[in-house]
Design a binder for these strands. Structure first.
Length: 1020
RNA sequence: GCCCGGGUGGCGAAAUGGCAGACGCACAGGACUUAAAAUCCUGGGUCCCGAACGGGACGUGUGGGUUCGAGUCCCACCCCGGGCACCA
């Protein structure tokens, strides 16, 4: 961290007291608070609900709002915020009606954990953190409409979060429903009110309670038992994304998996739309790919393998007659939605390989396992299931190399050929995907192949690879020796063999043919599966939105399983006041200990009710905040429909790539439900999305030293010339200690431990593309920038940067570092560079030598020269185009070029200065306002019209173009800008050097692009 | 393993298929100064020839290709970063 910035340092250190108050210097500390106060006082950036007259359309530009952590703003935050701020300030000057709000995503675990540790209520911590974040954002001069600010923890806000939850609770997904949406599109599939759910007669007959339970099973919000990540050390339950490698993300404590009653949201009902409608979004392809990948749609077929009726005593397989009888029934009844208990239903993407199914595998948790287990196998199966249950998902995947499993002792019958197929259980089949059961085709699936080889199960090839096919790396790796021949699995498409009547059919034809045949026979049907699972929507936390739901209790005070929703006038359901929650050491929610007055009530009909005590996850509040900003104070609706129509969707949304999947997928899901229910008018919430890249810490040079050497300090200075202990970074093996999560280093040849040593730049030299230790060319030094983190001590605090250089410098530097989307390392010397640029701008217009702040005498009311005008218009053009494409780094370069050229003018026309100040203003608004004022303007420049460029003033009469001979640059000639290619060729031939290269050669061809270049193609 | 990004001076980077390295940092030299800071000016991809003016060869991770011409397009590979990872 650099200390005070040099000019300030010199002011303070200089004994000349006059300099302490030297106003004329570029003094960010004086200018910035002044203009921030001005904008606040005049509400300069307040967005009215109605556009000003003459408005050129509206623009909604949104930052991903922050979680106000106790650590305050990170330099990563202002990166995206500056980019959006520049966009907004520019748009306002172009006459747009701009919505640019900010708020706080303030529910969440840290404040709760802080409360457990210190006893300070999360609401207090949250308020303090928000105050600090707001102070820091205002300090950076962002043009937010602060009148729209809110926090997800405000009851006025979460009232509507609860309201939207009740909409989800009140909605079921009708996949067949055909309708015309608000945009006029024809659609199939819609989220509909639960009262429109058709109740089957058999349910209706069982009475009111049965109907309610039937409805509950179909809602988008439903209850299920799901394993939670219980962390005893934190005394809390964690979300999946808060668990990394089986440990808590915060603190690294071990996590256990326990089943608990949970709220789920049926996001899978929208999986197809979430995947398909990405096409409409102007988003980075990488983010779309990430989401599609996450949704993981695969098409295939569900197929039933017959196991026969349950019998006592247990039989190992059904008889042939039973199988034939079952087929006859199925032929008549068709394929049932519910498989029943006479079949194992499997999902496969390769129904064409049915003839190659040599065994089946059930997930250990599959409900049919018990029934299919024979007496002889009972012991082994039970042991395996116990073992599998104890393993976390991670342990399961960790053991990927070794396939494990147990035979149940029973067989199922393959519907296409009537062959008895052994049924195994194995943990490589997941209960939560597909039907939790597979048909194994070892010849054409690598996992099945490995399993079959391990347990010596038969392998039947049913797909012939195309002629000349070479097995892939993985396929080759699994090859086995088969009577002297190599036998490999094959996972690609080809031609059917060993498949009865289908022999010779290409895979791509086979799949639909057999799917159709199975469907006709009632034995299978086309099916689609997703990797995406339903969204676990409850948390066992205090600091989150309460659910607006009640559980009915029976006479003994036990829940009956029936629910009642709060009515919307009962919202918000606030957290209990004066409740000092403490961890009670159980995985169930802290609100279980809330006062009875909060927890219980009696309904008008006399039913005892108990509140739902789970709370919503942090995602809930961030799922719809972009809607509320358009109408933040509305007390009768979450948003006014007219305002929704006017502002939505968000035109530009900028935030970190860490939200590429979850936040963006969850908000799209909610938006689509609201769309189906008629509350919003577009199917997608965010039109254009940009991810700002991560800002890394300053690059560090590292070398390695044997740790066993005694007496050496951890610094190169201690033994700068001692070659004995140094290890080239190339010879160092890095591992992560599984217990501590710490990185460990070892000499890869000896295996001995080594330690990392920080090296200074002057101790390093470059040789052959690598950094090496000075004087030890064999010792390679690593240079890398790493993520900023407290533990590395390389975190840059925006407060410090602003104190030393000012907000305008911080803003400018963050934009100047490189492309917005790129990951890039912080370098404090770069801040210094942009600071110097701003100081040059100041001196270009202000008089530094004077005693008071006044205009530089070079700034005069005169007409600009042609050259000055060309410079100005070129700059306006470049900056304008760069802002529109968010190439903010090059926009700044262009302004630097302008200043480098213009500041050397003895006379600087005032009009040019004014235009330049306006161009600079979105980037460095404080300095620009100050100079604008100095140039004699009274009001803010925030709504001054953006300078227009005039193409005719940019054009030059002559241009210099390169001349090549055989593609190699041999000279440059100056030609008329509008000249033709013949003139360019003639000028090129006249050049001495070029002529020398053409001398005695035969010119085969001349390529002349007017105004660009000339190339002579010659032969000797 | 699969899916995305990305490899250009000492560093951050720039370049609609047409002068590689704009702009900035760091560095070196100079001016100003009693001195320093600040500021201003100058220089620079590498190697070679040359006292100098100047000129040549090579140069955007590696190897091929397309093209009059490739950092940019195509093929193969290597390395770095991110995401997913037994999803049938």
């Amino acid at each position: 961290m650099a200390g005070l910035h040099p000019p300030l340092a010199s002011c303070l250190l200089n004994s000349d007291s006059r300099l302490l108050f030297q106003m004329p210097r570029y003094d960010a500390a004086r200018i910035e608070p002044k203009w921030q106060a001005y904008w606040d006082e005049h509400e300069t950036f307040r967005t009215s609900d109605d556009p000003a007259s003459g408005s050129k359309g509206n623009l909604y530009v949104l930052d991903m709002f922050p979680y106000p952590s106790g650590a305050g703003l990170h330099v990563g935050h202002p990166e995206g915020y500056t980019a959006t701020d520049i966009t907004c300030r520019y748009a306002r000057m172009r006459g747009k009606h701009v919505l640019h709000p900010m708020g706080w995503d303030a529910f969440g675990l840290p404040a709760e954990q802080h409360a457990i540790k210190t006893g300070v209520h999360p609401a207090v911590t949250t308020k303090n953190n928000i105050d600090n974040f707001r102070r820091q954002l205002k300090m950076l001069g962002f043009s937010y409409d602060w009148s729209r600010e809110f926090s997800t923890t405000d009851p006025d806000y979460y009232r509507w979060t609860q309201w939207i939850f009740l909409e989800l609770f009140d909605t079921w997904y009708d996949a067949e429903f055909e309708w015309t949406d608000a945009t006029g599109g024809e659609r199939r599939g819609k989220g509909r009110p639960i009262r429109e759910l058709r109740i089957p007669k058999c349910v209706q007959e069982k009475g009111d309670e049965a109907v309610r339970r039937y409805q509950d099973k179909h809602r988008l919000a439903y209850q299920a038992s799901a394993p939670v990540n219980w962390c005893p050390a934190l005394g809390t339950v964690l979300a999946n994304e808060e668990v990394i490698d089986g440990k808590s993300e915060r603190g690294g404590h071990p996590v256990q998996r326990l089943p608990l009653r949970q709220w789920m949201l049926r996001i899978t009902a929208y999986a197809d739309r979430l995947a398909e409608e990405l096409d409409e979004c102007d988003w980075p392809e990488s983010v779309k790919a990430l989401q599609r990948n996450w949704i993981g749609r695969s098409t295939g077929a569900e197929v039933d393998f017959y196991i026969g009726p349950e019998t006592t005593p247990h039989r190992l397989h059904a008889t042939h007659d039973e199988f034939e009888g079952w087929k006859t029934i199925r032929c008549a009844s068709g394929f049932p939605a519910d498989p029943g208990d006479e079949v194992i239903r499997v999902f496969t993407t390769r129904p064409d390989t049915l003839y190659g199914a040599t065994y089946m595998v059930l997930a250990p948790e599959h409900p049919l396992v018990d029934r299919l287990t024979s007496e002889e196998q009972r012991h082994a199966v039970d042991a395996y299931r116990r073992q599998a249950a104890a393993k976390s998902d991670l342990d399961r995947t960790d053991l990927a190399k070794e396939k494990t499993g147990v035979f149940t002792g029973s067989y199922a019958i393959n519907p296409v050929n009537g062959i008895r197929t052994p049924v195994w259980i194995a943990d490589y089949v997941l209960a939560s995907y597909g039907t939790g059961a597979i048909m194994a085709v070892p010849a054409h699936d690598l996992r099945d192949w490995e399993f079959a080889c391990t347990f010596r199960l038969p392998i039947v090839h049913v797909v012939e690879p195309p002629v000349g096919y070479e097995p892939s790396k993985e396929e080759r790796a699994l090859c086995r020796d088969c009577d002297g021949d190599a036998d490999c699995p094959y996972t690609g498409e080809g031609t059917a063999i060993n498949s009865n009547a289908y022999n010779g059919t290409p895979t791509s034809d086979f799949k639909p043919m057999i799917t159709m045949a199975l469907a006709t026979a009632g034995l299978g049907r086309e099916a689609i599966n997703y990797k995406l699972r339903d969204w676990l929507f409850s948390r066992q936390h205090f600091w989150g939105e309460p659910f607006p739901l009640w559980h009915e209790l029976d006479a003994n005070g036990n829940p009956t399983g029936l629910l009642r929703a709060d009515t919307s006038d009962a919202l918000p359901v606030k957290l209990p006041e004066d409740f000092h929650f403490k961890p009670h050491g159980r995985p169930d929610p802290p609100l279980e200990e809330a006062p009875d007055s909060w927890l219980y009530k009696t309904a008008e009909d006399g039913t005892r009710l108990k509140r739902e005590t789970n709370s919503m996850p942090q995602w809930a509040g961030s799922c719809w905040y972009y809607l509320r900003f358009a109408d933040p104070k509305n007390e009768t609706a979450f948003i006014d429909p007219a305002k929704e129509k006017y502002w939505l969707p968000v035109d530009l949304y900028i935030g970190g790539a860490e939200h590429a999947v979850l936040h963006l997928l969850y908000s799209r899901f909610w938006h689509k439900v609201l769309f189906d229910r008629g509350h919003v008018s577009t199917p997608e919430p965010f039109r254009k999305l940009v991810n700002q890249g991560m800002i890394l810490g300053e690059p560090e040079l590292t070398t390695y030293r044997r740790e066993s050497l005694p007496g050496l300090g951890n610094s190169l200075e201690d033994h700068p010339t001692d070659p004995a202990g140094w290890i080239s970074a190339k010879d160092v093996r890095k591992d992560v200690d599984p217990k501590t999560g710490q990185e460990t280093f070892a000499d890869s040849s000896s295996g001995m431990g080594v330690v990392a040593v920080r090296v200074m730049p002057d101790q390093v030299e470059k040789s052959g593309g690598e950094f090496t230790l000075k004087g030890h060319p064999s010792i390679v030094v690593e240079s890398r920038a790493t993520k900023m983190s407290k533990s590395r001590g390389n975190v840059i605090n925006p407060d410090d940067v602003v104190k030393s250089y000012g907000a305008d410098s911080l803003r400018l530097y963050e934009m100047f570092m490189g492309p917005l989307e790129a990951t890039k390392p912080w370098q404090m010397s770069g801040v210094e560079g942009v600071y110097r640029f701003l100081a040059r701008v100041w001196r270009m217009i202000a008089d530094e030598a004077a005693d008071d702040v006044k205009l530089n005498t070079a700034v005069q009311k005169v007409e600009p020269t042609d050259e000055q005008e060309r410079l100005l218009h070129r700059t306006i053009k470049a900056v304008t185009q760069d802002i529109e494409s968010l190439s903010l780094n090059t926009a700044i370069s262009r302004m630097m070029e302008f200043v480098n050229a213009f500041a050397s003018s003895e006379v600087r026309p005032k009009s040019v200065c004014e235009q330049f100040v306006l161009v600079l203003s979105p980037f460095a608004p404080h300095l620009a306002e100050e100079l604008w004022h100095l140039l004699g303007r009274e009001k803010t420049l925030a709504y001054e019209p953006w300078p227009e460029f005039d193409e005719s003033k940019i054009a030059e009469s002559t241009v210099e173009i390169p001349v090549q001979v055989n593609g190699k640059l041999r000279g440059r000639v100056r030609v008329a800008a509008d000249g033709n290619s013949a003139a360019a060729e003639a000028a090129a031939r006249a050049d001495n050097v070029v002529a020398a290269f053409l001398e005695g050669k035969q010119v085969v061809k001349v390529v002349a692009v007017p105004g660009r270049m000339v190339n002579f193609v010659v032969k000797p």
